[in-house]
Design a protein around this nucleic acid. Structure first.
Lengths: 193, 193
DNA sequence: TTCATTTCTTGTCCTAGTTCAATGCATGTG
DNA sequence: CACATGCATTGAACTAGGACAAGAAATGAA
């Protein structure tokens, strides 16, 4: 049950069995059905979630009412809204929604603190996870700015080979920052090659 | 001399004078003249820099030879290439260049480790800094995807009021992900209002 | 002060991607 | 099963922004 998350958290920092025990004891296990919104815009995000099974999307709604998907999180990924740390008092601007039936491990900010005080090495592990998310996001920013829609789509397929089967195309379009219609045209063009 | 950086690092974590002393003793002070490249593509980034004075840009070069600016760092900001943490063995894909005469405090990865072992609370401070960078980058990704060039430029002016005076316009264009010519057209249109 | 280099502006033409239908196809639900 | 809703496709018309070129203005080095 805990092997997935323990493997994930141990990727860059090695933990003692005892430390992992503390970690596991603080996790909350949760099952959520498809199409459930875990976090609404305007709420405070009081969790950090590790996806054991399933798929979620994290998205903003822009000034014109369009959804912009910031992240897909599938098995072994973390999701949360960390933007509260920018505008400390302000509530979240993002939505987090399950796209499939999901299974999670959850943390509240308080239990995270408890973890850090009981086993300080986790501070380091979470710093490195954060660092990796930043690197991924920077990479995506670069791609968004410098690549054509077709290039972005092909790269997406390479990077998330299973995802294109699992989620609706218009979500992928939204993730890539292009219209659903245009993605469809790209796909027919690619298929003809 | 150390008050700026100490204020910065103490923003989210409170340190004892002794801890700050350790921190300061590990910093390397460096003066670099304008137009110096601190990090070339293909090198390992062996520093994390805090800008005391001056301005630097961090950029990629895309497949067509175009520069894409990922970050401007001015006084009290941190710059580094953290992408090494994604592709552990791979060297950096980014350049870091001073745009003005600059003064820095520098850290090597080794001294950072030394700091963490001597004063573990810094692990936390750097985790939170990382988290903030991630939030800023996510925000920027959202803007890049969902806003028009004009909106992005106006927001840039609001967010970095001094920067538009300090750096060449084509750098700003590159940061916004638009062509220098188009930015110029936007500016004349705005001026006519 | 002069010449060279970089930066900024402006115009013209062009294209990648959008918007708005309309249509067909899946799907899930009672 | 039928029907409603959501999803993907296609086409036509449109537009934001890019590419290119040429000139003006600013900066800087000698």
């Amino acid at each position: 049950m805990y092997s997935q998350i323990n493997k994930n958290i141990s990727r860059y920092v090695t933990f003692e069995p005892k430390e992992l025990e503390i970690f596991n004891s603080l996790l909350e296990h949760k099952t959520v059905s498809k199409k459930t919104i875990l976090l609404h815009e305007g709420e405070m995000c009081n969790f950090e979630a590790f996806v054991i099974k399933g798929c979620v999307r994290k998205y903003y709604i822009d000034a014109n009412g369009f959804e912009v998907i910031l992240q897909f999180a599938i098995e072994n990924a973390w999701v949360s809204d960390i933007s509260f740390s920018i505008y400390e008092d302000n509530p979240s601007r993002v939505y987090i929604e399950t796209l499939e039936d999901c299974e999670f491990f959850l943390f509240s900010p308080e239990t995270k603190e408890e973890l850090f005080s009981k086993a300080p090495k986790f501070e380091r592990a979470f710093r490195i996870l954060m660092q990796r998310s930043l690197a991924v996001t920077q990479d995506r920013l670069f791609n968004t700015i410098s690549k054509s829609a077709t290039e972005k789509y092909l790269e997406f397929l390479e990077h998330y080979p299973t995802l294109s089967q699992r989620v609706a195309q218009h979500y992928i379009a939204s993730y890539l920052g292009i219209s659903a219609e245009f993605l469809s045209k790209i796909r027919t063009k690619i298929a003809k090659l």
